[in-house]
């Protein structure tokens, strides 16, 4: 076979491979989804974040508005500090915005739901959400249920 045919075939093969890689990076793993747009981070304290993971969705009214960037524990108070990356310019969330940890479907992943507030003041970068509700842990619920039955 002529060398040129081989070279063209190999070129096409390498190109197909690179296209495959780009497809997997962009379409499958969703790189660049949050990339270029501006964003800022705020924090929220929860008494329990059971099952929440980094990169989980942050949504308001069911629309994704950001991602969970970090989860740390505050040993002194025994609660969890969750760092949320919110898309857009600072000032699009009011200071009395609430945060809840919710579950997507029955076996779905945990995500953070934001409840809009009504205050004039807004949350700036690094501010903390005060109104929070942690994850519902099934074992705790059952425990409470049993204690209440006993009464």
């Amino acid at each position: 076979m002529r060398m040129r045919t081989i070279e063209i075939s190999v070129g096409g093969f390498v190109l197909a491979g690179v296209i495959g890689l780009v497809f997997l990076a962009v379409q499958v793993s969703g790189v660049g989804e949050l990339g270029e747009r501006t964003s800022y981070t705020i924090q929220a304290r929860f008494d329990d974040v059971a099952g929440l993971r980094e990169r989980a969705r942050v949504s308001m009214a069911g629309v994704t508005v950001g991602r969970v960037r970090g989860i740390d524990v505050d040993m002194q108070w025994g609660d969890a500090i969750v760092t949320l990356e919110i898309m857009g310019e600072p000032g699009n969330l009011t200071i009395d915005t609430g945060a809840k940890i919710l579950t997507d479907g029955v076996v779905g992943a945990r995500y953070v739901g934001l409840l809009p507030g009504s205050d004039e003041e807004t949350l700036g970068p690094g501010d903390e959400i005060v109104e929070t509700q942690g994850a519902l842990v099934l074992e705790n619920l059952i425990g409470e249920f049993l204690t209440n039955i006993g009464k």
Binding site: G17, G20, L21
Partner: peptide, 15 residues
């Protein structure tokens, strides 16, 4: 060189 490229093509086509 070939196998990683083939793997990328494999995963793309399988998806």
């Amino acid at each position: 060189i070939s196998l990683p490229l083939l793997t990328a093509i494999f995963s793309m086509v399988a998806v």
